[in-house]
Amino acid sequence: MSIDKDTAARVAKLARIKVEDDALPALAQEFNAILGFIEELNEVDVEGVEPMTSVTPQRLKRRVDVVNDGDQQAAVLKNAPDAREGFFAVPKVVE
């Protein structure tokens, strides 16, 4: 498996990270080095082996379905780069 410039651009887009066109070939090369290293996993016989979902045998606990937190608008918005009238503000999404 080899990653080309177009694939690198697609991955960057999916990850929502802006990568300039001229940086794409080097990025693709880095991906290939790392994926080349990961390829050795293909040597392992994983037939019939379950993918790990939890490293310790445990069931996730369920909590009672009640409101136990909230009413913290000011604290929630405190660190926002742009907050107005009790909301997070972002560039226009809908025309």
Binding site: V11, L14, I38, L41, N42, V44, V46, V49, E50, P51, M52, T53, V55
Partner: peptide, 19 residues
């Protein structure tokens, strides 16, 4: 994790983790 590679990479790695 992307479509088409999830099984080949992510799920295989999780199987190896079990081992």
């Amino acid at each position: 994790l992307s479509a088409g590679f999830y099984d080949a990479y992510y799920n295989r790695a999780r199987r190896v983790r079990t081992l």
